[in-house]
Design a protein around this nucleic acid. Structure first.
Lengths: 133, 133
DNA sequence: TTAGTAATGAGAATAATAACTATATATTCA
DNA sequence: TGAATATATAGTTATTATTCTCATTACTAA
């Protein structure tokens, strides 16, 4: 399971496992902190290099967020995210892909649309309850 | 036309004029380069400070893009953008706001949605023609 | 006119990420 | 198997966008 010209090192495989084993859409730094508990002298550069490599291979998805740091997602299927502005957590949304809006833009404007980004922001279920108290 | 505790300096007023006078969704650095032609010793810090202030006052809109630098928009009405991955230009889209998708997420997930971001990526009309040649 | 407040320019600080480099592993092939 | 080659690593430095600091300047309102 290695692409030509690439090797599956223990660092890369650990990083992949960490991403696949969480639903928290972690940042590079989260991955680094976790990885150090298994390979203490792993370097942050190696984490970034492998996150990029894994994203290029299509094994994980990079969600590079406005302003702040990128997050990574082990679920590469098409889905949208909701970010809670109170606790900072990112939740998966079970919405279907709105492919028709791409067509709308193509028809109205004449640009050829390759992708769209759709993200939701607000207060999550849990934080909403806490705010009321 | 000044908010209590704020002053409309010649720097701030120039920066606002520059943003309002272009449709190119400029970056802070573009604003800085333009501003220097009118106030040669204006500093980049002042540009950032005023861009943030103007955005907080609701006079301009900040579009902080994934990965790269923020862009600013003098048109504060609700509208979406298309970014050409070939020439880098950002175009306005005359689409209506999809407010119903916010409701969909609220109903399905129980989070309270305050806003969504929707951006389109692809190849613009002009670059599409150039690629064919 | 003066005391008080806000904004400025210049430069240092920060934070996320990428690039560099010498060393250490893998892999390939004789 | 072992030398030759290619790729990855740790550690470090560089880059880039943005914010912060601070001494100075410019308004503002009594």
């Amino acid at each position: 399971m290695s692409v030509a010209g690439t090797r599956l090192t223990k660092q890369k495989s650990l990083i992949l496992d960490l991403i696949l084993g969480t639903k928290c859409h972690p940042t590079a730094d989260w991955v680094y902190q976790e990885a150090r508990q298994h390979i203490p002298d792993i370097s942050l550069g190696t984490v970034y290099r492998n996150l990029n490599a894994l994203a290029n291979q299509g094994l994980i998805r990079e969600m590079n967020y406005a302003g702040s740091s990128s997050r990574y997602d082990g679920d590469v299927s098409q889905h949208y995210h909701f970010t809670c502005q109170s606790c900072g957590n990112v939740f998966d949304l079970p919405l279907e892909a709105f492919t028709m809006i791409d067509n709308l833009v193509e028809e109205q404007e004449g640009h050829s649309v390759e992708a769209h980004r759709l993200e939701f922001y607000g207060t999550c279920k849990t934080c909403k309850i806490e705010e009321k108290q």
